[in-house]
Simulated assay, not measured.
Amino acid sequence: MIEHRPFLSLGAIRRDWLDARLHFRFGETGHADHAPLGPLYVWNDDVFAPHSGFGLHAHRDAEIVTWVRSGAITHEDDAGNCARLVADSVQAMSAGTAIHHAERNEEDMPARLFQIWLRPRTPGGTPRWATRACSRELREGRFITLASGDPADVSAGALPINADARVRIATLREGTPVQHVLPMPGLAYLVADHGRLDVGYVRLAPRDGVVIRDEAQLMLTARDDTDVVIVELLRKGG
């Protein structure tokens, strides 16, 4: 089953510096039917205005994966990590028992990013942070795993997360079909970033999402050049 979540149906948070759309309901914000999918409970489509962002704040017991789509953000945390993440970069942060971090756009142009939060397999633990780049050339026509709770993915270069999920990205070209096999149990959430995409019989506009349930494989056909980001669940219960 493929459930379409059009971008314009998503909950919104708007500040003078932030324009966020919520693929999943968070607190009282968002569509009542946009419930979490297993451990996946936040997928925000964020735009940070120049010279703005989140100051130092705390997280615990969350696996947070951030994909920078354009512009750049600067990360700092109380574990001593500091980095400027440019477009086509991903960071994975395990909050563990607690971590304080700041995420700001210190640039002169807006920053666009996906913020994806997953519930950990087990609570607590030592906080952890890592980052990597994934160029368009590397992901051209195929999915690359950015972060994963599967040790085999981590051995192949994915960032480690403490969750039963993997986060993947592909750059698909207009008119090119791709058949994508999902891991059991066939649960996933997918977003087309900046172009139209057919997922089976469902046509996505840019920034639309789909919930995928009980599907062994997907036929993806790009109607425009687009990036496709997917979170695949690795266990039924999540």
Rank of each mutant, 00 (worst) to 15 (best):
I2C: 05
H4W: 12
H4Y: 08
R5V: 14
G11F: 13
I13M: 11
D19L: 13
A20E: 14
A20C: 08
R21G: 02
R25S: 07
G30Q: 02
H31F: 00
H31R: 15
A35Y: 08
L37T: 06
P39I: 03
L40Y: 03
D45Q: 09
F48D: 04
A49T: 06
A49M: 11
S52L: 09
L56N: 09
H57Q: 08
A58S: 14
A58Q: 13
E63S: 03
I64N: 02
V65I: 15
V68C: 08
A72K: 00
A72L: 05
I73D: 01
E76N: 06
D78M: 10
A83S: 14
R84G: 01
L85E: 05
L85Q: 04
L85G: 02
V86M: 09
V86E: 15
S89R: 01
V90L: 06
V90A: 04
A95W: 03
A102E: 07
N105T: 10
M109A: 15
F114V: 03
F114L: 15
Q115F: 08
W117E: 02
L118E: 01
L118R: 02
L118N: 03
R119G: 09
R121F: 00
R121T: 06
T122H: 13
T122M: 05
G124C: 07
G125A: 06
P127L: 08
P127I: 10
R128V: 00
W129F: 15
T131L: 01
A133K: 09
R136Q: 10
R136Y: 07
R139M: 14
R139N: 10
E140W: 09
R142G: 00
F143T: 05
T145C: 14
S155G: 06
P160T: 06
P160E: 10
I161S: 04
I161N: 01
N162W: 01
A163M: 07
A165K: 04
I169P: 01
T171L: 14
E174K: 14
E174C: 11
E174G: 07
P177H: 12
P177R: 11
V178C: 12
H180R: 08
V181D: 11
V181P: 00
L182I: 07
L182G: 02
P185Q: 10
P185T: 09
L187Y: 05
A188H: 03
Y189H: 13
L190C: 11
V191H: 06
V191I: 15
D198K: 11
G200D: 09
G200Q: 08
Y201C: 07
L204N: 04
A205K: 09
A205H: 07
P206T: 07
V211P: 00
I212C: 05
I212K: 02
R213H: 12
R213L: 12
A222Y: 02
R223S: 11
D224A: 12
D227Q: 14
V229L: 15
I230C: 11
V231P: 04
G237Y: 04
G237L: 05
